[in-house]
């Protein structure tokens, strides 16, 4: 166990990730299809409410919504799973030794992989709505990578807090709602950006990521300021998260 612990940890990580993906949809009839169907259905609802009813009738609006909704979904699901990961695996942690960071990291990875699969929906909807890929689409890799970093950073921080404070789950739900409304998922950000409250969006790293991802999909150059800000934010969150986690991980077992 001690000789090649890196390889071994990778094996445990892949087993935990596989477990997460397999079990997430095991008890439903449609299985993994749900990860495609669910964002598609919410997109339809959001398009009807914020598009048709509010008078936003651009035919690319569903694509616009779907981009934001998928990336926000990835963030909210993976951070929530990471927040609960230590408690959810408490029976294992109490009995066998596994490096503890594998629990939050694996729950982020499996949600991220499910998210990548769900991007198929975006491809399909884009083509149907007439948003065809340009060379700029390759830019999408950058915000997607930063999104993963952000999820890991926030996930590590949350998983540490979640061990000591059970009610963090509920607080985080409220916080997620705040993040959702300041991500411009289902509205055009222009008016807000021009107002004196523009900072609400600009300082939200998830908005920066979503905005750059949309640029890639709609064939525009991404905004370097937003990219840098979200990258720095994510890296700092990882450093903070790893520090908090490492400092407290030996105490976890006394609190679960």
């Amino acid at each position: 166990m001690d000789n090649n612990s890196f390889l071994q940890n990778r094996f445990i990580l892949s087993e935990l990730v596989k477990k997460g993906i397999r079990l997430k949809y095991r008890r439903s009839y449609l299985g993994i299809i749900w990860s495609l169907l669910e964002p598609l259905l919410t997109m339809i609802v959001l398009t009807i409410v914020f598009g048709t009813l509010m008078g936003q009738d651009s035919h690319t609006f569903p694509v616009y919504i779907l981009c934001g909704r998928l990336l926000y979904g990835c963030f909210s699901q993976s951070t929530t799973a990471a927040l609960k990961s230590i408690r959810a695996n408490s029976s294992m942690i109490k009995k066998v030794y596994v490096p503890k960071y594998l629990y939050p990291v694996s729950s982020i990875f499996f949600n991220y992989i499910i998210f990548l699969i769900s991007l198929i929906v975006l491809v399909a909807v884009s083509l149907v709505m007439g948003v065809f890929p340009t060379l700029y689409v390759f830019q999408a890799v950058v915000p997607l990578f930063i999104l993963m970093l952000l999820c890991i950073g926030c996930g590590m921080i949350l998983s540490t807090i979640g061990v000591f404070f059970r009610d963090m789950e509920y607080l985080w739900n409220v916080f997620l709602m705040l993040i959702m409304y300041t991500c411009a998922i289902f509205y055009m950000p222009d008016r807000l950006l021009d107002s004196s409250f523009g900072w609400v969006l600009k300082y939200n790293p998830l908005y920066c990521i979503i905005s750059n991802f949309r640029s890639a999909i709609f064939g525009e150059l991404m905004d370097m300021n937003l990219m840098l800000y979200s990258l720095v934010f994510s890296v700092v969150s990882i450093i903070l998260g790893v520090y908090m986690f490492k400092k407290n991980e030996d105490k976890f077992i006394l609190h679960i």
Binding site: M1, L7, E15, R22, K94, V96
Partner: peptide, 27 residues
Amino acid sequence: IELGAGFDMQYTGKENIYLYGAVLGYS
């Protein structure tokens, strides 16, 4: 001690062999 500590109840026996084996340090 505590045999089967890494078992997942929703997982099948075979899947659990891999999961628990990984936890015990097997390749």
